[in-house]
Write a protein that binds this DNA or RNA. Structure first.
Length: 957
RNA sequence: GCGGGAAUGGUGAAAUGGUAGACACGAAGGACUUAAAAUCCUUUGACCCGGAAGGGUUGUGCGGGUUCGAGUCCCGCUUCCCGUACCA
């Protein structure tokens, strides 16, 4: 059945429009009449088919156990006030192509989109203007939706989520509550209910307990049982997965909030670039470190790039070593240190504590107290940034000594800020001969240096490598001399465990995530305080909605903005937590919510989760490697432990798209004049480069009139031209308003159409690569689509003729290339393949219906609007998104080969196969090449050599 | 420092170890046009020979190696980009 009501109507509409255009063109410009062929009118086509998709809910997806699922996810955007620029859709286009391809292959594809709506910019805007962040955010989302809708994505908008929507963040809060009510059992390797821990403590105390903990506690059952409720609650914080703890945090005074490690880079905040200092604060934290090993192990089975996996491995930073006790001389305490170089213990000449270490107070002698206090004060004053820039060696002697447990020698204990409080035990044994930091410190304070490795010259610098033969390492009970470093490490570890002076230990660099933010625009904690102790609210209060406040600033006495909320109390009158959750809270499980976005009984129903399981393909920027992608994996693993989700890892395959940078244009003003000189001539003058709006530049040629109108001060600008043109210079910079290099996708869609934008973005280069946006090449892609259009316009679509051999070759070659390219995410070469195919078909004057049908199916993921148009013109019903993906047949791709007998070494004869039509010269050339190749056969005679002139394709012995 | 990646025409870039530069932009020339736009055709890595058809040399950051054959694989450098950084 071939009904085509839409097609017919569409044709009429198009005809009318075309005639109208002709008329206006006639009357305005007296141009010659247009032919019967209709121009490719992207505006009309795209508008019509986008409406068709909406009206028919073509992209709506439902769980369907009869079909295999495929889940394609984009990292959802933060809706910023600047709107989308042309770089944002890059990854979305790639994932959209993949989604459509998979759908055409028969998969049930989940391809959702939403908004990461909590964020600092909206809040800062609110502080400045008083406008509620919700309004700002909603406006920005509206703008994003408009922009996205024009590009023709196959998102199922019915599943949209917004992290600031109470229906959504109910489940963010819910997850937090589950974490509060859980502890991590290291033996079972999973999270368990806190009630089970309480039961264990009441029966055994901490004896035999293997739990991820803030610090090591030793409690008997009696001690635990005799605690008050308040004491018990405070003690449990040591094990909860969401817990409160006094930790060193990154405090940003300008932002008035703490930041997570991944939100700080080079000592300044990632957002805003403000200095960050270290501060001890009581904060909500997530015990991510409990999952360090699983996060590490899980990477092996993921299809992520090696670089991204490596980044995560480094961030997790597993290191195997030993914890050792060094007794303090004259005191009843021991210093605990962590080292990966247990073998170097005979070279320890001093010890160093972090300034924040709890040992400091106990070890400072009265004589040194003044000096130590002064040093601590100095360290405290320095920001993290200053600490990093100013790498001068500094430190102070505590006055105390420790005893090296192996040599028995007394060694001084120092304090220095090169030792970090947050890693290991906050104390180190210093081996200046084999650690560059200890070396610098020893040199500066003139402390002894004992070399331990044969042949290592430590007169100028330390020898840090973990290799060589040990020396100077013999004590009364342990002799390491003559051993290789690795052997020595193993032997020492064994020895200290036997002697009870230490234990083998694995340390991770990964810290627990700080989960409090002293801000307004985030998820409130479902937590209240009774007698200064945190209690969870009842689950029935969820979602605990964000209250209104009059101002978004901190309160005058330094409390977070929620301190201004009226009645921010439980019905019983207990105060509710004033902090809100950080940005990563809402983005950690959004991929699960898409599976079942309207469920108000569960984050995701077991049925929906069992069907969609995990994300098959995740596309997004690599900047989330150490933030979102760690937190999300942690969050997922926790929910996995709870039995809420069925997959341990959330993102099976991950592709990082590169950033699109801006291409800034420059004009060159001659100093102290209003005269501008063209790029080629600028070296003859003393010039100042000035950024100019990219919209005033076409192909590096400046629109001079536009430039004069752009700014009043340029109204009477003069120009020194070359070849009658003003050529601008350019530089690659971040795309931003202040650089005048922002290209808006709306403008491109308006001028060339969404299909052109989509194909051009893919054509720019490999998807993973960062590259500058350059509108210059877009005409080529647009030209290609017009050629394709003309191919259809010329064709006789009513004919059922079989394609010619040449036509079949073109189209099957294309199908093979495009299929392979999509699988490999190599879209730029696919676009090229389309161009070649269309050119070849143009040369063949092809208008074959079956050929065009196949092309339509192949191009549908790339240019869905034009494909939909073709699909209906071919008389099909429904949407091209469900058009079956064409299989290619290799038989059409095989060249016709002709055999030529050839003599070799004067006697041997073998056969060369060449493509049909090869001339004598080609045969001779091939024979020559084959002779060389035959040598490699080690005297064997080739039976057959298949040659494309100059290129040996295959040798059969 | 450490980790990851990259280097190919004027530009963006292609090349399972097999004719390097596909495809596109730009540029130059031509056709159509009163003209322009649009469209189409030709040329386009560099150098050299030739009146021309055509032919030759060279060429994928640098230096070696493996191979009949290397942009591609191995070893050693140089430069650039990204990530991370006192993690003991």
């Amino acid at each position: 059945m071939k009904t085509k009501p839409l097609c017919g109507k569409a044709r009429m509409r198009r005809l009318k429009k075309c005639q109208k255009n002709c008329v206006t063109l006639h009357s305005k410009r007296l141009t010659k009449p247009l032919t019967d062929n209709m121009e490719y009118n992207h505006k009309e086509i795209e508008k019509r088919w986008q409406q068709f998709w909406r009206d028919n809910e073509v992209y709506r997806v439902k769980e369907d156990p009869a079909r295999k699922k495929f889940y394609v996810l984009d990292m959802f955007p933060y809706p910023s006030g600047a709107g989308l620029h042309v770089g944002h859709p890059l990854g979305y286009i790639a994932s959209d192509i993949y989604s459509r391809y998979k759908r055409q292959q028969g998969f049930n594809v989940l391809h959702p989109m939403g908004y990461d709506a909590y964020g600092l910019p909206a809040e800062q805007y609110a502080i400045q203007t008083g406008q509620h962040p919700e309004i700002t955010t909603r406006n920005n989302i509206t703008r994003y939706e408009e922009q996205l809708s024009k590009i023709g994505f196959s998102f199922d908008w019915n599943r949209e989520v917004r992290t600031c929507d109470p229906k959504y963040y109910k489940w963010t809060q819910w997850a937090f509550m589950q974490m509060f009510n859980s502890w991590y059992d290291l033996q079972a390797g999973k999270a368990r209910p806190i009630s089970e821990l309480e039961k264990y403590l009441s029966e055994h105390g901490t004896e035999g307990l293997h739990a991820a903990e803030t610090k090591e506690l030793h409690l008997t059952a009696d001690q635990w049982n005799s605690m008050t409720e308040k004491e018990k609650r405070q003690t449990l914080m040591n094990w909860r997965i969401a817990f409160q703890g006094e930790t060193m945090v990154n405090w940003c005074p300008q932002l008035g909030t703490v930041l997570a490690n991944d939100e700080v880079s080079e000592g300044v905040s990632v957002r805003g670039g403000f200095p960050v200092e270290q501060k001890l604060m009581n904060q909500w934290c997530l015990r991510v470190s409990a999952y360090a090993q699983r996060l590490l192990d899980g990477l092996d089975k993921l299809q992520w790039t090696d670089s991204l996996k490596e980044t995560q491995r480094n961030w997790i930073g597993r290191s195997e070593g030993a914890e050792m006790l060094f007794p303090v001389v004259g005191k009843d305490i021991s210093l605990e240190i962590f080292t990966t170089r247990a073998d170097t213990i005979f070279g320890v000449t001093f010890m160093v504590l972090a300034p924040e270490s709890a040992y400091v107070k106990e070890l400072v002698t009265p004589e040194q107290k003044a000096a130590v206090d002064a040093y601590l004060e100095e360290v405290k004053r320095k920001t993290e940034r200053e600490r990093q820039i100013d790498k001068k060696v500094s430190g102070v002697f505590t006055g105390s000594f420790a005893r090296n447990p192996l040599t028995g020698k007394e060694i001084p204990i120092w304090i220095s800020d090169y030792v970090l409080a947050g890693y290991g035990t906050g104390a180190i044994m210093a081996v200046p001969a084999h650690d560059s930091r200890d070396y610098a410190f020893a040199r500066h304070f003139d402390l002894p240096i004992i070399p331990l490795i044969e042949g290592a010259d430590v007169s100028e610098e330390s020898f840090d490598a973990k290799e060589g033969v040990m020396m100077n390492s013999c004590g009364p009970k342990l002799d390491l001399n003559g051993l290789q470093v690795k052997e020595a490490i193993a032997k020492t570890k064994k020895f200290i465990e036997e002697e009870g002076i230490g234990k083998v230990k694995v340390n991770y660099r990964l810290r627990d995530a700080i989960f409090s933010r002293q801000r307004y625009w985030g998820e409130p904690f479902p937590v209240y305080y009774k007698d200064g102790t945190a209690y969870l609210m009842d689950e029935s209060v969820l979602p605990l909605e964000l209250p209104e406040v009059k101002s978004y600033k901190p309160t005058p006495d330094g409390e977070p903005p929620l301190g201004r909320a009226e009645n921010w109390k439980t019905p019983e009158g207990y105060p509710i937590e004033l902090c809100t959750m950080p940005g990563f809270a809402g983005s950690s499980a959004y991929y699960l919510r898409y599976m079942d976005p309207h469920n108000d009984q569960a984050l995701v129903s077991p049925e929906a989760n069992a069907y969609w399981r995990d994300v098959d393909l995740y596309v997004g920027g690599s900047e989330h490697a150490t933030g979102h992608l760690i937190y999300s994996r942690f969050w997922n693993k926790f929910l996995y432990d709870l039995g809420v989700v069925v997959e341990d890892e959330p993102f099976k395959r991950l592709v990082n798209q590169g950033m699109i940078q801006g291409r800034t244009s420059f004009v060159y003003r001659i100093k102290d004049t209003n005269t501008f000189v063209s790029r080629g001539l600028k070296d003859n003058y003393d010039v100042t480069p000035i950024r100019v709006d990219i919209n005033l530049v076409d192909n590096d040629v400046l629109d001079i009139d536009g430039f004069r109108k752009w700014r009043p001060e340029y109204a009477d600008a003069e120009f020194v031209l070359e070849d009658g043109k003003y050529i601008c210079g350019y530089a690659v910079e971040k795309m931003s308003k202040s650089m005048f290099n922002v290209v808006n996708p709306d403008d491109i869609v308006d001028r060339y159409g969404a299909d052109t934008l989509r194909m051009y973005e893919m054509f720019l280069g490999p998807i993973e690569q960062s590259k500058p946006w350059d509108t210059n090449g877009i005409d080529g892609v647009n030209r290609f689509l017009r050629k394709l259009w003309n191919l259809f316009d010329r064709a006789d679509l009513s004919s059922d003729a079989e394609p010619s051999k040449e036509e079949l070759k073109v189209v099957h070659k294309l199908a093979k290339k495009v299929t392979q390219d999509i699988e490999n995410f190599s879209f730029n070469t696919s676009v090229a393949a389309f161009m070649i195919a269309v050119n070849e078909l143009g040369q063949l004057k092809s208008g074959n219906r079956k050929v065009l049908d196949m092309i339509t199916r192949l191009i549908a993921p790339f240019a869905p609007h034009i494909a939909e148009e073709f699909w209906h013109r071919l008389g099909n019903e429904g949407s091209v998104v469900d058009a079956e993906w064409p299989a290619y047949d290799e038989q059409y791709l095989v060249e016709d080969m002709v055999k030529y007998p050839v003599s070799f070494n004067g006697k041997t004869r073998f056969t060369i196969e060449l493509p049909a039509g090869a001339d004598k010269a080609a045969v001779e050339e091939a024979a020559l090449k084959a002779e060389g190749a035959a040598k490699w056969l080690d005297g064997k005679q080739p039976r057959k050599v298949i040659v494309v002139p100059g290129k040996i394709v295959n040798i059969v012995v």
